[in-house]
Nucleic acid binder design. Structure first.
Lengths: 345, 345
DNA sequence: TTGTACGCGTTATCAA
DNA sequence: TTGATAACGCGTACAA
């Protein structure tokens, strides 16, 4: 089996030194134009491919970014990754993709592996089951830049790019309140994750500011999946009639879908009997029997900004630590009942 | 800024040689148990992280797989990537993710970069605009194993994992024929892509075998996107009434969605006036006003098998070149009209 | 069991 | 403008 061609072999072929080959191929100054041309053409002819591994070793830089994603099939992440890839590609960086599968142990291992592979920086959206921040801190001790996106960890001195979860949850809850709903339930996300906490706070804040009391029985932790939304909604429907909610704020669209199924299976109508809103504008949201009012998340934008921020940290070690918030937008459809009282807002 | 800890520093700290450290940390034999323990604990205490770059350079192996995907937001790919990641993770390999954005030039660049980064093998699903195979062949000349998945290139001596596009297209077309449709149109994919070609052939074969003539006017190249499906369907609807199709086989679900919109906007009913079937079982397929009959692609399985095959090629250079076909499954819903004549098949 | 020398493919540095 | 040499951090091969 023929071995790979190295710069040394190109140099020998031409009877010159490796350094001249290196300089010629990397567009460095101090090479005779004729020499440069000869080097380039013979390198191509011989099928020379530069070895970035060797280059990385001496440069102490890999032009590689590590990416840790909790669940690549969640519709948010492919969009975000596209934004990340776009920014990275533009700057000449590649991505090492790892998948934590929402498992903190696997996430920790991924982080260690990325450090070993000497990525120049790390982009991460945390796993659901994360409880302590030791693994992130150990990365930071290595002086390896890390930027969180979407699901963040605050207070450890890392930059973070997320959407305005608090404000958005508050806005969509307030929207329901404006339409006269008073007994409002919240299907919450896991409190271990930043967006779960931010959204529940936004919900509570909207209730408070509008003088509505918060009934803890109407707040149920459902997780991010359809099944959890379904189960939680069933519980709400088992409450005595007078305690049941008139409207539901779900932590995300899949949870809302599950809840919608539970509502319909119990013979109730949406939004006439129970109104409901989601969060994330899943591709299915407008196709539901009753199209779902929700929050549209600019995932591509989040990914892109996060990657840009990371690149800034990589290229300038004094880059300021930032918490960047991308504005999201409320999408009014029919599940919130705006149309049912005859007026469209 | 404190530098990273190397094996050498751990060795000096303990007053022993680098080799003993290396052996102890890599679970090699011929190390005294006490020494090993001391090495492991001080390495941890000092925050030592092994340098895979240096390791890769000496071992001539990176434990990294290159992945080239044409469009990460197509619902097929996140699923496939999860399968790939699962197999790779299990074998101790990481993924470098690149995105061709359906552009052959960008794809070519990605391939070159991956070769430079010295990945141990490459998984690729080709871009739409690919016309020649030079870039794949140049990878193969480097003896770098390459496995195609989903969108394949045949005849260049590379393994490939795909679904049974031909058989599936044939099966779903035959299904329409069994229900009495005779004038059937096909919204085809780009002929530059293997799955586009396989599906159109499957369509034609079903027509042939059932004694139906193929009307070239009813075959329109629409691409993989909703907009193309919409445009193409409009063209079909502009044909004189007697030439218009009774049923449509779309190359994939997004194209079918576009076509469905065109049909509905023209005041026609699905499936009563025009039946339609898709391909891919997009997450939206069952939520359409008329749920779409389609082919369910086991994307996770395709990804996983492709990764396993690549790993086999990497670890055994005599591994046989294979064309692996994963069986897919027809999902009968309402858009094909099976229910309209009162019987469910 | 432990250590020494060398090499992996490249670039920085300094000398020619 | 060019070249020789020493790194980069680790593992292999052999010697002690």
């Amino acid at each position: 089996m023929r071995k790979r061609i190295t710069a040394k072999q190109v140099a020998e072929e031409l009877g010159i030194s490796i350094m001249t080959v290196s300089r010629a191929l990397n567009n460095r100054p101090n090479v005779d134009d004729k020499t440069r041309e000869k080097v380039i053409s013979t390198a191509r002819r011989m099928g020379y491919v530069p070895d970035h591994i060797a280059k990385s070793l001496v440069l102490q830089k890999t032009f590689t970014i590590g990416l840790v994603v909790p669940e690549i099939t969640h519709s948010f992440f492919p969009e975000a990754i596209r934004g990340i890839e776009e920014a990275a590609y533009g700057a000449g960086y590649q991505l090492i993709l790892t998948h934590s599968a929402e498992d903190s142990e696997r996430e920790n291992k991924a982080l260690q592996t990325l450090a070993s592979k000497r990525v120049d920086g790390i982009l991460i959206s945390t796993a659901e089951s994360v409880t302590d921040y030791e693994s992130y801190e150990s990365i930071m001790r290595l002086k390896l830049p890390i930027v969180f996106f979407d699901r963040c960890v605050y207070g450890i001195g890392a930059s973070c790019v997320s959407i305005d979860d608090f404000e958005s949850a508050k806005k969509i809850t307030a929207h329901l309140i404006q339409h006269g709903y008073k007994k409002i339930a919240h299907l919450s996300g896991p409190s271990s994750v930043s967006i779960g906490r931010a959204r529940i706070e936004g919900f509570k804040n909207a209730m408070d500011e509008n003088g509505l009391s918060i009934n803890d029985e109407l707040i149920i932790e459902s997780g991010f999946h359809e099944a959890g939304g379904y189960e939680s909604m069933l519980k709400l429907l088992q409450l005595p009639k007078e305690k049941q909610p008139q409207a539901v704020v779900a932590v995300n669209d899949p949870a809302a879908f599950g809840a919608m199924n539970a509502i319909l299976e119990n013979g109730l109508r949406i939004p006439e009997d129970i109104a409901i809103v989601g969060f994330s504008d899943d591709i299915r949201a407008e196709l539901m029997p009753t199209p779902l009012t929700t929050i549209r998340q600019p995932a591509y934008e989040v990914g892109k900004r996060a990657a840009q921020k990371l690149l800034a940290h990589i290229e300038n070690k004094d880059e300021i630590i930032d918490e960047i918030i991308i504005k999201s937008e409320i999408v009014i459809r029919e599940s919130c009942g705006c149309y049912s009282d005859g007026k469209k807002i």
